[in-house]
Lab assay of single mutants.
Amino acid sequence: DETGKFLVLALYDYQEKSPREVTAKKGDILTLLNSTNKDWWKVEVNGRQGFVPAAYVKFL
């Protein structure tokens, strides 16, 4: 159920650099879980949760 969740689009490829991050490919649609940090947003992609740089994604 996606009610109340926001989707964001990956603008660039991002390769995770730590276990707390997730890899995303340009064009991926990610479920935004938390955007309270202006630099790192928590997302879910391909069943995995983790952080990506906020500058790499935008709201749909």
Rank of each mutant, 00 (worst) to 15 (best):
Q15D: 14
K38Q: 10
E2A: 14
E21C: 12
F6E: 08
T31E: 08
L32I: 09
A10C: 15
T3V: 13
Y14R: 00
G47K: 04
K38I: 08
S35H: 09
E2V: 13
G47T: 05
Y14M: 03
I29F: 05
K38C: 11
F59E: 09
L33R: 00
K58H: 09
F59G: 06
K5Q: 12
F51S: 01
R20Y: 14
V52S: 02
Y56R: 01
T31Y: 11
T23Y: 04
L32D: 00
L32T: 02
D13N: 06
T31D: 02
T23K: 02
R20G: 15
K25W: 08
K26M: 09
N37R: 08
P19E: 11
A10S: 04
K5P: 13
E16R: 11
G4L: 11
P53D: 02
L32C: 08
K17G: 08
A55P: 06
G27Y: 04
R20I: 12
D13E: 07
Q15R: 09
K17F: 04
L33I: 14
G50Q: 02
L9E: 11
A24F: 15
P53K: 05
T23W: 06
Q49I: 15
Y14W: 11
P19H: 10
G50Y: 05
D1T: 14
P19Y: 10
T23A: 03
E21A: 04
L9N: 01
T3F: 13
R48A: 05
K26V: 07
V22W: 03
V8T: 02
V57G: 00
N34P: 02
R48L: 07
Q49F: 07
N46C: 10
A24T: 15
Q49E: 11
K25S: 07
Y56K: 04
G47P: 02
D13V: 06
N34S: 12
F51W: 13
L11K: 04
L9W: 06
I29G: 01
G50P: 00
T3I: 12
R20L: 14
T31G: 04
Y12D: 07
D13M: 06
L11G: 02
V8G: 05
K58L: 12
G27K: 03
N34W: 09
K26C: 10
T36D: 14
T23L: 04
G27V: 03
K17Q: 14
S18P: 04
K58M: 15
Y12G: 04
S35G: 11
V45Q: 06
Y14T: 01
Y56S: 11
E2T: 13
Q15V: 15
P19S: 12
N37D: 14
N37Y: 08
G27W: 05
T23G: 08
D1P: 14
A10N: 01
N34I: 08
S18E: 08
L9R: 06
G50L: 04
N37E: 08
Q15H: 14
D28K: 02
P19R: 09
L60K: 05
L7R: 09
I29N: 01
D28N: 05
K26P: 06
K38P: 14
D28R: 02
I29S: 02
F59A: 09
V22D: 03
T36F: 10
V57I: 09
T31Q: 10
P19W: 13
V8H: 05
F51L: 08
S18D: 10
W40A: 00
T3P: 13
E44V: 06
I29A: 02
Y56W: 06
I29M: 06
T3L: 12
K38W: 06
A54N: 03
R20H: 14
V57L: 15
S18F: 06
R48T: 06
V57P: 01
F59C: 15
T36Q: 12
W40S: 00
E21L: 06
T23I: 03
N34C: 13
K58E: 13
K38S: 11
G50N: 00
G27T: 02
P19G: 08
P53V: 09
Q49R: 11
V8C: 10
F6I: 15
W40E: 01
R20Q: 12
S18I: 04
T36A: 12
L30K: 00
F59N: 07
L7F: 15
D1S: 14
V45T: 09
T36S: 14
L7T: 09
W40C: 08
W41Q: 01
E21H: 05
Q49K: 09
P19V: 09
V8M: 07
R20A: 12
P19A: 10
K17V: 08
Y14G: 01
R20W: 15
K42Y: 15
Q15K: 12
L7Y: 15
W40V: 01
A24L: 15
A24H: 05
L60I: 14
A10D: 01
K17R: 14
Q15Y: 15
R48W: 07
V57Q: 00
K26A: 13
L32F: 05
L33M: 05
F51Y: 15
V43W: 03
Q49T: 13
G47L: 06
E44M: 07
E44Y: 06
A10V: 15
K17P: 02
A24Q: 09
V43Y: 02
N37Q: 08
L7A: 05
F51M: 07
K38A: 11
V45S: 08
L9S: 03
A55Q: 11
T36M: 10
D39Q: 11
K17E: 07
Q49S: 09
Y12I: 09
D28I: 06
K17L: 08
Q49C: 11
F6G: 11
K25D: 03
V8A: 06
L11E: 02
K5R: 13
L9C: 13
D39T: 13
E2W: 13
K58R: 13
K42L: 15
D39S: 10
G27E: 04
G50K: 02
A55T: 12
F59M: 14
V45K: 08
S18N: 12
G50A: 03
S35T: 12
K42N: 04
W41H: 01
W40L: 01
G27F: 04
E21Q: 09
L7V: 08
P53M: 06
F51D: 02
F51I: 05
D13Q: 04
G47D: 06
D39P: 02
Q15L: 13
W40H: 01
A54W: 06
V45C: 08
F6K: 12
N46M: 07
G4I: 12
L32G: 01
N34L: 07
D1A: 14
T36K: 11
R20C: 15
L60T: 05
A24Y: 11
W41Y: 10
G50M: 04
G4N: 12
L7S: 07
